[in-house]
Design a protein around this nucleic acid. Structure first.
Lengths: 352, 352
DNA sequence: CTGAAAGCGCTTACAG
DNA sequence: CTGAAAGCGCTTACAG
């Protein structure tokens, strides 16, 4: 834990002052005394000011301001049994958070929606096994009222642990293997994929490959399922899995080009991977979309930054974060799990 | 705050069960009873097991395992007056976190160093004014024992608020205007800049421009000071400030090329900006380093990913995070502020 | 509207 | 080594 307080030789008043860990914080009792009321009354004004007379209210507010009083959350949480904070658990290696703009937007949306309700969001990154253990302990130790679980892989034991501990959880995307036990919010991945592939076909492309997401995530399997819905069981040469990183998109495209040189379009299951695929295509001397058309997924900032700009599938990320927060709050009040599927739609630009 | 518990019509046992907010957590009293000892003894084994007989110790451990007991942090913190967690405050817009690999490494290093001591790190992003207010309230409300402040700008009121509240703080980089009041860890920016510019000169470059960091941060002013140490008061055409983003490096390079077409080298004060500068130079048809040499700063992953690979100044980021944690722990135990400056060194590659 | 009091779940001297 | 007890700073029925 913490280091022991070191003693030094010279001692004396000045030194002692310097070493005071921190100024003693005023307590509710102090405020009550200053305002000439009881602790109960101070508590009432802190919690909405119901059943408090105007003079008392004003005296307390004045005392709070003068003393700089801030409630002690630990004491409050001990009695309310709530912490008024929730965890945002990113079940990915830390670099993913830094590379993928989707997380950025999701995080911002959740922070926003929660802070409107005076709930703090704690960002935790569960990239390694050790992280997951530490975070599992932390969130189940009463530090948070619930958790938003983002980018969960099927083999992740974290979700089972949280559920087992009775912690309210909302997943982003379909939580493979836990669909009935936990609330989740997902974009209609399968339908989005269908729209994209149908569009590619309608534009005359015939040999359509795909770079999927990880097949242990719902985004991975559902988008591939949509591709199959339209094209039937695919030639195995035309399908290759990436991991949503830019680099994986580039590699996958290289390989696709090698195993299926006749391919004239590719549906890449994230914009970031599509940006990588574009690099590979250009290096191979392919014109986009004339030689090979590229379709993405997400409609993130990457889609419009790419050259050519990406035709892609829009995910309503800000609605997703809003719904996640709504469901989590519901779960915290004890509602049974429920799922929300939000529509996706095609956005056409120059790449296909 | 939270939504009120909604009532539904049908009621009944089953429904009530489903709606239980969460399983009642076993308390220390429960464990004590199971183990046939007193609460005090359970507490002692939880806090290191000193002064506990072997049979008692084992009985308690068994009871803990069987009951799945986890301590209630709020109760513990209420008496210990510590939360065993610290905040990592990134005083930058959220996208910066996502773009700049330095933060990534710093964050990972701090997490690591703290978790070895069983202290949790809370990541908070103080990008907007509203964020800063919310975070200021949060960290001073007793949720954390201290704060690591990263990428602080001179006009940021957060640092003053934290100090004023008596919260132990350690800054990354020299906290402009607060050098005497707060502990900080910094790389020797000025000397690093000197090394780079001296090197460029020794390679025969004569018209050396610079793209600086924001001039309200120590990295911005100190690296510029180092450049001046070697070259004297610069021609104003040769100096332009960026904001550490890749895009700002690109723009600054464009402008530098416009106002000083005779320039034959540029010292760019971060690798990420240097990567942007390279794009601008290549677009202008300049060969690197033959027409214009480029020097970076950081020696981050960006340096080796760039083409050509960057000659740069290495910052010892993992030592920086280690020292930050050490100083914060010291500040929490009441030590007066102190500063640690870590050496930087030149790393030569192909860009200069 | 308001105060006195119980209680949230822990830790830590204090006796033994 | 171990138990009984005080106390951390709050909230919330309960009386009045």
């Amino acid at each position: 834990m913490f280091q022991t307080l070191q003693c030094n030789e010279d001692g004396g008043m000045t030194d002692a002052d310097t070493r005071m860990p921190r100024r003693a914080r005023p307590t509710m009792e102090d405020v009550a005394q200053m305002a000439g009321v009881s602790r109960g009354t101070v508590s009432r004004v802190l919690n909405g000011g119901r059943h408090v007379s105007t003079p008392a209210l004003e005296a307390v507010q004045r005392a709070i301001r003068k003393s700089g009083y801030v409630v002690n959350q630990h004491a409050r949480s001990l009695v309310t049994q709530r912490s008024d904070s929730v965890a945002f658990i990113l079940a990915e290696p830390q670099d993913r958070l830094f590379e993928d703009p989707n997380f950025n937007i999701l995080l911002r949306g959740c922070t926003q929606a929660l802070s409107e309700r005076d709930i703090t969001l704690l960002l935790t990154i569960a990239g390694t096994q050790a992280d997951r253990k530490r975070i599992g302990r932390y969130v189940t130790a009463g530090h948070v009222d619930g958790a938003l679980l983002v980018s969960d892989h099927a083999d992740n034991p974290l979700i089972a642990e949280l559920l087992n501990r009775g912690l309210p959880v909302v997943a982003c995307g379909r939580p493979l293997g836990h669909e009935r036990e936990v609330s989740y919010v997902a974009a209609d991945d399968r339908d989005g994929a269908r729209q994209m592939v149908t569009y590619l076909r309608s534009r005359g492309y015939r040999t359509i490959g795909t770079i999927t997401g990880p097949l242990d995530t719902s985004g991975g399997v559902d988008r591939l399922a949509g591709y199959r819905d339209v094209l039937g069981e695919p030639d195995p040469r035309l399908v290759i899995a990436g991991d949503y990183t830019r680099a994986s998109g580039e590699e996958a495209m290289d390989q696709l080009l090698r195993q299926a040189p006749d391919l004239d379009a590719v549906f890449v299951c994230s914009d970031l991977m599509a940006a990588g695929a574009i690099v590979a295509l250009q290096r191979a001397g392919k014109r986009i979309p004339d030689d090979v058309a590229v379709g993405g997924f997400d409609d993130s900032a990457v889609a419009t930054a790419a050259m050519p700009r990406l035709t892609t599938v829009r995910q309503p990320l800000s609605r997703i974060s809003g719904e996640m927060v709504r469901l989590l709050l519901a779960a915290i009040t004890g509602d049974p799990p429920s799922a929300v599927i939000l529509p996706t739609n095609l956005v056409t630009r120059e790449s296909a």
